[in-house]
Design a protein around this nucleic acid. Structure first.
Lengths: 227, 227
DNA sequence: ACGGAATTTTGCAACGGGTGTAAAGTTCTC
DNA sequence: GAGAACTTTACACCCGTTGCAAAATTCCGT
């Protein structure tokens, strides 16, 4: 839910933004309650008091209604790499974020599980995703985008040419680790394990993957030198 | 194309098999000629002289018509691991297959590019795939299945429990390497580079990825001991 | 405040993938 | 040859998605 805010200067722009978030919120609510496939776009449109066509004006596909907020989450990872302190590696920076902070959140970023309500909300989100083939597939596509983004980032940070196989390989394997992490997290929360246990399991798999990556890429992912 | 064969004992079974391959062949032909999205299932059914419902009786989705033959290709990789000679590692066995043999083929297995015609046929296949979002997405799903299969294989070969994070991590990263390899291959053939150049580029990226994996997993992927 | 330009929303019709059902046709088994 | 078992088919329908053109709304210059 975004705050409403008053309609200042641009009424048009303000209405557009409001319509967009309304549709997204309504859709997410219905998805979490009834499941992704069980909700039709027509229902969403009706609940948002809007025509079906308008829904598709804002969101290219039904899946985008679900993943709307999750898309730019990679930004926090990129930031962690770019702003890593002197003496730490890129993989170390990623390792830190993914081991500590469990859940990506709306504003783009990662945080820990807060309380029981937070836990439950996120669990339902993951359960909805897991229950839907279409959404699981969509997550894979997002992974592809992230791979490309990270490959570019790594190439730049390592002063390599843009399609360098080393940067591409590193990116592919980091995303593979993240996907594995996501599966582990989803499975652990589906079992309703305690937040501490969930965090422990996620940390275990993240540690496993990133320690191996650190070894494999020790020759190119050097600690950031002092400025 | 499968050989026709005479209708021996089971007429029913024989007809089923023939209908299936007919539909698949007709569909693949149309896809390669006009593109995946441009062909409707109704057209395929008409061309195969069959009802639309029958197409869906044999193939759960339109995408399956394209990837029908590619599904069991992982079998050859599994075999390479299982039958690796004494003294070689699992990663070494996979490395060998993926670096030498370029293209997976119908019977399940991998081979080198043969001649110009072979090249062209495979290039068109990849181009068709690359041109279709639905098919690219489907390839990701296939990757997921392969990841699960390899994780199980690795766990078994290493005498680890079935969900061991090490086996899962290794599988995820091997599949990531294969996906990267596939992208490289597809790009190289789209440029119509010579077969030798294509092979060289594929080999370069495979070498890069598998050498790093060998380092990262040296502690668990030990050379097979003499019997 | 007014009128036209730009933009957004909408209804409508249509297409294509996919499914359920029940009838009709084919093959198998005895 | 008869009846069981299985396949194919036509038909009707649902849903996501798109194109089109009209209607509603906001913007902007005067």
């Amino acid at each position: 839910m975004q705050e409403a805010g008053v309609p200042p200067a641009g009424l048009r722009a303000w209405k557009k933004a409001r319509t967009r978030t309304t549709i997204s919120d309504v859709a997410t609510g219905l998805f979490m309650r009834d499941g992704f496939e069980a909700v039709t776009v027509a229902q969403i449109a009706a609940a948002a008091e809007v025509s079906v066509k308008t829904v598709f004006n804002y969101f290219p596909s039904k899946e985008d209604l679900f993943f709307d907020r999750v898309d730019d989450v990679i930004g926090a990872l990129v930031d962690a790499v770019v702003e890593r302190p002197v003496g730490s590696t890129m993989l170390g920076a990623l390792h830190g974020v993914l081991a500590d902070r469990i859940v990506p959140f709306d504003a783009g970023g990662w945080r820990r599980l807060r309380d029981a309500e937070d836990y439950e909300r996120f669990r339902r989100f993951l359960a909805t995703e897991e229950a839907s083939p279409a959404l699981r597939t969509r997550r894979l596509v997002v992974g592809e985008l992230w791979t490309a983004r990270l490959a570019q980032l790594f190439a730049h940070q390592l002063s390599l040419s843009n399609g360098d196989p080393r940067a591409a390989t590193l990116a592919a394997m980091v995303v593979a680790a993240m996907a594995l992490r996501a599966r582990t997290l989803s499975a652990a929360m589906a079992e309703r394990l305690s937040a501490r246990t969930v965090e422990r399991r996620v940390r275990a798999v993240v540690d496993e993957a990133f320690e191996r990556l650190a070894i494999a890429f020790a020759d190119i992912d050097l600690p950031r030198p002092p400025t």
